[in-house]
Simulated assay, not measured.
Amino acid sequence: MYKIAVLGDYDSIYGFAALGLDICPVNSPEEAKKTFVQLAEAKTGIIYVTEALAAVLKHEIDRYKDAIVPTVIQIPGISGNTGAGIEGVKKSVEQAVGSDILFGGN
C-alpha cells in the first residue's frame, strides 16, 4: 500500500496528521528538497506540497511530472492560495481529456 505524505511548513500541514497522513514539516529549501527526494524515492504514492514550497521545488517536482508514482498535488498553505494548485490540476485534466472542462475551450 502506498503512503500519502504532506510537505510544507508546520503550521500549514499539521492538521493533516489527524487524517492519518504522514506530515513532513520543513524549515528551509534545502531540507525541503532532501525530504521531497526521499519521499519520491521511497515510492510515496501521493505527495501534497504547499504551493509556496512547490515553487521552490519546481525542478525536483518536474522530474516526476510524467511518473505514475509519486503524484504531486499542490495545496494552499497558511499564507494563502496562489492558484498554482488549481492551475496544475486543470492542466492535467486538459492533457487527459483534450479540453478545458471548466470553460469548454480547446
Rank of each mutant, 00 (worst) to 15 (best):
E41Y: 03
S99H: 14
I78F: 12
V6A: 06
K91V: 02
E87L: 13
E30Q: 15
K3D: 15
T82Y: 05
V69M: 03
S28W: 01
A67Y: 11
A96R: 15
A52K: 09
I101Q: 09
A42L: 03
L39C: 09
T50H: 06
P29K: 02
N27P: 00
A32H: 01
E41G: 03
F103L: 12
A32L: 03
Q38R: 15
G80I: 11
T82V: 03
V49S: 06
A67P: 00
V69H: 01
K43L: 10
I4M: 14
P25D: 13
Y2V: 13
F103C: 11
I78W: 08
T82Q: 04
E41A: 00
G45D: 12
E87V: 07
V72Y: 05
I46F: 07
G105A: 04
K43V: 03
F103I: 05
Y2G: 08
E94T: 13
V97Q: 10
G45K: 08
E60H: 08
L53H: 03
L39K: 04
A96P: 05
T82W: 02
F103S: 14
K43M: 09
A96H: 11
T71D: 02
Q95Y: 06
K58E: 06
G80S: 12
G77S: 10
G20V: 13
E31H: 03
D100L: 10
G45H: 05
V93A: 04
V26D: 10
I73K: 07
K58A: 11
A52I: 02
A42W: 02
G85T: 02
G45R: 10
I4H: 08
V72I: 04
G45E: 11
I68K: 07
S92I: 04
G8Q: 04
E60D: 11
R63A: 06
G85Q: 00
Q95P: 00
F36A: 03
D66Q: 04
K58L: 05
G85M: 01
V26S: 09
H59E: 13
T71A: 06
A17N: 09
N27C: 03
V26E: 11
R63H: 09
Y48E: 00
Q74V: 00
L19K: 07
E41C: 01
V89T: 14
G85S: 00
L102Y: 10
M1I: 10
A40I: 02
H59M: 07
P70R: 00
I75T: 11
L102M: 10
I101E: 04
E30C: 05
A17R: 10
R63S: 08
A5N: 10
I61P: 04
L7R: 01
D66K: 06
N106I: 14
G105N: 10
Q74I: 00
F36V: 00
K33F: 10
I46E: 08
G8V: 04
Q95T: 13
Q38W: 03
R63D: 07
V37I: 15
G88H: 06
I23T: 13
T71L: 05
A52W: 00
Q74K: 15
K34R: 15
P29W: 01
P25A: 11
G88S: 05
G104H: 14
E94M: 15
E94H: 12
L7Y: 06
I86T: 14
F16W: 07
V6F: 06
P70V: 00
K58Y: 06
L7S: 05
K3H: 14
K43Q: 13
S99F: 13
C24K: 15
E31A: 13
T50R: 04
A17G: 09
L53M: 14
K90F: 07
V69S: 04
G85V: 01
L19V: 02
T44W: 03
